[in-house]
Design a protein around this nucleic acid. Structure first.
Length: 265
DNA sequence: ATGTCCACCTGCTGGC
DNA sequence: TGCCAGCAGGTGGACA
């Protein structure tokens, strides 16, 4: 969002090209007509949704799914660029999403938070609302693992598989722990760990896997900071005491969890 | 109401 | 070299 704001805020959309509208949620057919001629007024992020606010009362809701990217730059040959915005100053924005798990939708700016994909989201992890007390109370009635709870966007919004693994590692809590068994003290540690993990990732220029790119096309590089995610079999970087058996991978709800059984209790 | 699991897609990697 | 199984950042919705 920051990359987009720096590049295109204030510009007028001259032309809209929708190559494929059949993402997981079909794009509205009025997308082109609503965007053409409008000026980019500003941006907002909510959970993993990007809201691009126009000067005509509409906001464009974007979600990158698993494989989505937004890139400012000239046309390329790659086959999954589904939406292109051309701006009055000659800049060009491409929305690329090979797996088409992403989303593009329109919503009136004043109704953003009532959009069906946003309406039930939990608090932002970097807000003051998220603290040890809130986590502890939210965990009490849950009958799931702490891993599943942190991935639940209705409990806390915006954490994905990577950051949940990393935050639990920092907080020294095993992903398999049941929510009601997490103590107040641990919940406080976890809240702090979540904030630190996200803050570090943002500071490091984004995140993610081999093909993640910033809007400039540069690779995000938080991957250099991962302690456990994707590191099955490797020694845990901060394990107290001598021989660390190494990072383990288990499946929880069909998704990989990475943890160190020595450090995380 | 709550929790679990699948489906939606394409691309890449590693083992044979 | 080629083929194929397995896995991947997310999440809405079907089902128990």
């Amino acid at each position: 969002m920051r990359g987009l704001a720096a590049a295109i805020q204030g510009l007028r959309i001259k032309r809209v090209l929708v190559r494929r509208g059949d993402l997981r949620h079909a794009m509205p057919t009025s997308l082109g007509a609503t965007l053409t001629g409008a000026r980019i007024h500003g941006f907002r992020r909510r959970a993993k949704y990007l809201l691009m606010r126009l000067d005509n009362g509409w906001s464009v809701l974007w979600h990158l799914g698993m494989s989505g990217r937004m890139v400012i730059g000239p046309a390329t040959n790659q086959p999954h660029e589904h939406v292109v915005l051309d701006f009055d100053d000659g800049k060009r924005l491409g929305f690329i999403d090979p797996r088409r798990f992403g989303a593009v939708d329109l919503v009136r700016t004043e109704d953003e938070d009532r959009h069906r994909l946003l309406a039930r989201l939990g608090p932002e992890p970097l807000s003051e609302t998220l603290n040890g007390k809130l986590l502890h109370e939210a965990f009490a009635p849950k009958r799931t693992s702490v891993k599943a709870a942190l991935l639940d966007q209705n409990l806390i919004a915006g954490l994905g598989n990577i950051y949940v693994c990393e935050a639990l590692y920092r907080a020294r809590i095993r992903p398999t722990r049941l929510c009601p068994d997490v103590t107040k003290r641990e919940a406080t540690r976890l809240a702090a760990a979540i904030k630190e993990t996200l803050t570090d990732a943002i500071k490091a220029g984004g995140s993610s896997l081999r093909d993640y790119v910033q809007t400039s096309g540069e690779l995000g590089y938080f991957q250099h900071h991962w302690c456990v995610y994707g590191k099955e079999g490797e020694p845990c970087p901060t394990c107290p005491g001598a021989p660390c058996p190494g990072v383990q991978r288990i499946l929880q709800g069909g998704r990989s969890s990475f943890f160190c059984e020595v450090k995380q209790k």
